[in-house]
Nucleic acid binder design. Structure first.
Length: 933
DNA sequence: GACATCACG
DNA sequence: GACGTACGTGATGTCC
């Protein structure tokens, strides 16, 4: 029945990816009415396919046709050159779930749909075009991709479907200056920034064509490069010959891709209404469905988009939470059914259950999945069997679990599949757990981070709070399952009939939140913030946290002993001064001694009635009595010992010998990170004694620590945002910014500047960032309030842009309920309109947030770009401390690392924001953090 | 668990 | 005109 492909046959090859991207970018972000699924690209894709099919009449109509797709991100070209297509931006989040739907669309139109793992669509197209040519037929490639132009000629043409323009040999010559057979030579020289093909630096298509036409082909050119007259060009070709040859191999299409089908399989088939109409109806494309139904003379199918005018949230809420929809996966067969469902949808909500809260030490206990509200499963893996022996428990595994290995082998391809979106709540945790078992989870969405991008400053972003607020549902609490205190058990000891509903519900909640947040992200105009500043942090931070930093236990231990001795000596002196023993660590007892017994002057703190004995109070009292100074010294040592030298030792991971902090991405309202368990963002540095604790943070043998920090980043951002020419100029000239401020304010020439005047100016500069007030500045500088107010007035006079910024920001916050960073991060200010002192707090926070937040955005951008920038260096990024990044690098490579990392940091705002002030980064290096900083 | 204190940017 | 204030975090110890 099928004729062998040959003379008189005409093959059409459609570049599927080109269709998808064109459709995606041509249309607004449409969503399916019934459930908010992004559908714009699929809609455009279907319209293009339909228009294409309609146009296939007349003598040029194809006899054979296929749509060719890319599959997998790793191809044989990545093996040749690992940076191939490395600068590609990640696929937009609302496009990803649409990719599988375009495959289904192609099949629904009854058109062959082909792809092959490890090959690009271009290679398949090349192979088929050559086969068609050899068989004596003709071929039209429907694409405008210049990478395909090497195939044109001898029966093969290209067609730009949008412009309806055919490209033949002359068309190729117009584009490249050479005919198709020499196109790869030109591309090899010119390179390609889109695919990250290096080429020869400084040579573009025009020069390349000139050279190839003069020397005949690339090999002759490279052989005879010495004859080139222009010295610079000659040198470039000689120096980069290998890179040019590599580039040619990258652009040269593989015309012998092994395929499991033949040209005959691609014969044009009539549309099948039984396939096409249900698909179009499912997508809810009313217009297109109607049009095609009319053309095919079939009945218009019913389109069920009833919740059309209701928000997706309402429909989601319609599905009640019910554990009847939760199942336990106990076999490979059951798991395969879930995996099939995941592939059908293209996304899945995932949650892990583990033996603890610390993702560095906890083990995976089970995995829950959810693909549809109300339908979720839990895959228990290492739950222990119940035991009659209450004391020791049982080491036997509970019944009804599939083997851990099998489950992970089955889940790994799904979790790593680039076409399957994995949705989680705080995915950094789950990603780290999976990383422990060799699974790299990607791509991901994170409902916690979506909420953070949309609701930053409004409320927390934990699952229980989000579920309560946005789903009206209180998830099952974990406490009754685990118990508390001494008798608490780990999740692997929880009986399965308790574990399944709890674990499955978490995945269910996550999926429902995602369905609601996804479209909301666009409405709140924070998709870009989420995609560029939040989501990419997950992988970056997971790697940093897993790397950890080496901390020397002996150093800490020695310091701890020294602190103990000094504290004991101080305690003796204190008891002598007071005349009896008491708890020095009790502010309550101390307050009574200082103010009641000894009669020093001080006031009560309103709330609890206790005296305030903070450092500022004691500092003032120190002039009148010896005791306060001793207390201050003791407190410093006590702090250093308990919080640092002692507690830090407990955080050294026994397996790695390193300390692994955890960063909260969605903790601080301004966009800053926060570090916990332990907090490595507040390791002492200001006091000499405390600073020595940094000596315990060391590089591994043969390595060194490198610290890079932004110089005055917040003041620079203030200079930009508030548009202060004097500040900008000072920064650009590399001046001492506080001295400059002092000189400007107090009319003191720079060469007569005193440290005291500079100190005051510095306090004012920082005060401005914090939303300055006369009272606050007065307290900080310990000067009368009137004097402080005078300073501020003078500051505003000299830098009027500051006052404008502060007033404008407050007004913006009042009007909108939020303020924004330069990168579009929104920080809500719900108290800005409050009455009373609350409003003052909110106003100052509103003034500070864009400055602190923009600085936080900048370093986030640097961190996100960092892995690619240092991929070739033996270096790891370990820590972030708001304006500083700490690396560990092989001895000898520190120079290269500093160059690479500094360049990323200094240009981190580009190209989204052009700062009027340059960002400067200081670098240091050494065997420990004290030296490196 | 609230509060006070103090470590950092 | 009084109010009562520097911005953002996390960990620890005391005390109830």
């Amino acid at each position: 029945m099928t004729n062998t492909f040959g003379k008189g046959h005409h093959l059409h090859l459609i570049d599927g990816s080109a269709f998808i991207f064109r459709a995606y970018h041509a249309l607004p972000p449409l969503t399916r009415k019934s459930d908010g699924l992004p559908i714009g690209a699929v809609s455009g894709f279907c319209n293009m396919l339909h228009r294409y099919v309609e146009g296939n009449t007349g003598p040029d109509a194809p006899t054979h046709v296929a749509v060719i797709f890319d599959k997998g991100s790793h191809t044989f070209r990545n093996d040749m050159y690992d940076l191939y297509k490395a600068n590609r931006e990640a696929m937009p989040e609302d496009l990803r779930p649409q990719i599988p739907l375009t495959r289904r669309a192609t099949e629904a139109f009854n058109i062959a749909c082909k792809e092959k793992e490890g090959y690009e669509a271009d290679d398949i197209i090349a192979t088929l075009a050559v086969q068609a040519r050899k068989a004596g037929g003709t071929c039209t490639i429907i694409s405008s991709d210049k990478d395909l132009m090497q195939l044109v000629g001898d029966g093969v043409e290209m067609l730009d479907a949008m412009k309806n323009k055919r490209i033949d040999r002359d068309g190729v010559f117009e584009k490249f200056g050479v005919y198709p057979e020499r196109v790869v030579d030109v591309q090899a020289l010119a390179g390609d920034s889109v695919d990250n093909v290096p080429g020869a630096p400084g040579i573009g298509i025009k020069t390349a064509a000139l050279l190839i036409n003069e020397y005949g082909d690339l090999d002759s050119l490279l052989e005879r490069a010495g004859e080139i007259k222009q010295p610079k060009r000659k040198q470039t070709l000689i120096d980069h010959a290998d890179q040019i040859r590599l580039s040619r191999r990258l652009v040269l299409l593989d015309e012998a891709t092994p395929l499991d089908f033949t040209l005959e399989d691609l014969e044009v088939r009539d549309p099948n209404p039984d396939q096409l109409m249900p698909f179009l109806a499912e997508m809810e494309f009313r217009t297109l469905t109607k049009r095609i139904a009319d053309q095919l003379k079939v009945e218009m199918p019913e389109i069920n988009d009833t919740p059309a005018n209701a928000p997706a949230a309402l429909e989601i809420a319609d599905v009640p939470f019910d554990k009847a929809g939760y199942s336990q996966v106990d076999s490979a067969k059951a798991l395969q059914e879930w995996i099939d469902q995941i592939y059908e949808r293209g996304y899945v909500a995932v949650d892990t259950e583990t033996t603890g809260l610390n993702d560095m030490t906890a083990d995976l206990v089970g995995v829950s999945l959810c693909v549809e509200p109300g339908k979720a499963c839990y895959i228990p893996l290492i739950h222990k069997a119940a035991s009659s022996d209450d004391l020791f428990g049982s080491d036997d595994l509970a019944e009804g679990q599939m083997p851990l290995e099998t489950a992970l082998e089955m889940l790994k391809p799904v979790l790593e599949d680039e076409s399957i979106l994995k949705i989680g709540q705080n995915m950094k945790y789950d990603a780290k757990i999976f990383a422990q078992v060799g699974i790299t989870v990607a791509p991901i969405d994170d409902t916690m981070l979506m909420s953070y991008a949309m609701h930053g400053g409004l409320h927390g972003h934990g699952m229980d709070a989000l579920s309560e607020r946005y789903l009206g549902h209180t998830p099952l609490p974990i406490k009754p399952l685990l118990g508390s205190g001494k008798s608490a058990i780990t999740f692997d000891k929880v009986p399965l009939n308790d574990a399944v509903p709890y674990a499955a519900e978490d995945a269910d909640v996550t999926l429902r939140l995602w369905q609601q947040f996804k479209p909301a992200l666009h409405r709140a105009q924070v998709t870009r913030v989420y995609e560029t500043l939040e989501r990419p942090m997950v992988a970056v931070l997971a790697d940093m946290e897993r790397a950890g930093i080496k901390v020397d236990r002996d150093t800490l231990s020695r310091m701890s002993n020294a602190f103990s001795q000094k504290m004991a000596a101080l305690e003796d002196e204190i008891y002598t001064l007071v005349g009896r023993k008491f708890n020095v660590g009790s502010p309550k007892q101390l307050g009574e001694i200082l103010f009641d017994e000894m009669g020093l002057q001080g006031g009560k703190k309103g709330k609890t009635g206790a005296y305030a004995t903070g450092a500022d109070v004691l500092e003032d009292l120190a002039t009148e009595h010896e005791l306060p100074r001793r207390i201050l010294d003791w407190r410093q040592l006590s702090k250093l010992k308990s919080t640092y030298t002692d507690a830090l030792q407990d955080h050294i991971n026994p397996d790695t010998g390193r300390v692994h902090t955890s960063y909260s991405i969605a903790g601080a309202s301004t966009g800053r990170l926060a570090s916990t368990d332990p907090n490595l963002q507040n390791i002492p540095i200001r006091s000499e004694e405390g600073r020595r604790i940094r000596e315990a943070f060391v590089a591994e043998e043969g390595k060194t620590l490198v610290a890079l920090d932004y110089s005055q980043i917040e003041l620079r951002i203030l200079a930009h945002i508030a548009d202060i020419p004097a500040l900008k100029a000072a920064f650009d000239d590399g001046q001492d910014i506080h001295a400059m401020t002092a000189s400007e304010m107090f009319d003191v020439p720079l060469d007569e500047m005193t440290p005291e005047i500079r100190r005051q100016a510095k306090a004012i500069n920082f005060g401005v960032i914090y939303g300055i007030s006369g009272f606050g500045l007065a307290r900080n500088l310990r000067i009368p309030r009137s004097e402080a107010q005078g300073f501020i007035d003078r500051y505003f006079e000299r830098f009027p842009g500051i006052r404008t910024y502060m007033d404008d920001t407050k007004a913006f916050a009042k009007e909108h309920g939020y303020v924004e960073t330069l990168f579009g991060r929104r920080i809500h200010t719900p108290n800005i309109g409050a009455k009373g002192p609350q409003a003052g707090f909110a106003a100052r926070a509103a003034i500070n947030a864009p400055i602190q937040g923009t600085a936080a955005d900048v370093i986030r951008r640097a961190m996100i770009r960092m892995p690619a920038a240092i991929v070739d260096l033996p270096a790891k990024m370990l820590l972030q401390v708001h304006d500083e990044l700490l690396f560990e690098v092989d001895q000898g490579s520190q120079g290269a690392l500093i160059d690479a990392a500094r360049s990323v940091m200094e240009s981190a705002a580009d190209p989204v924001v052009h700062l009027d002030v340059k960002l400067t980064v200081d670098a240091g290096e050494g065997p420990n953090w004290a030296v490196a900083h």
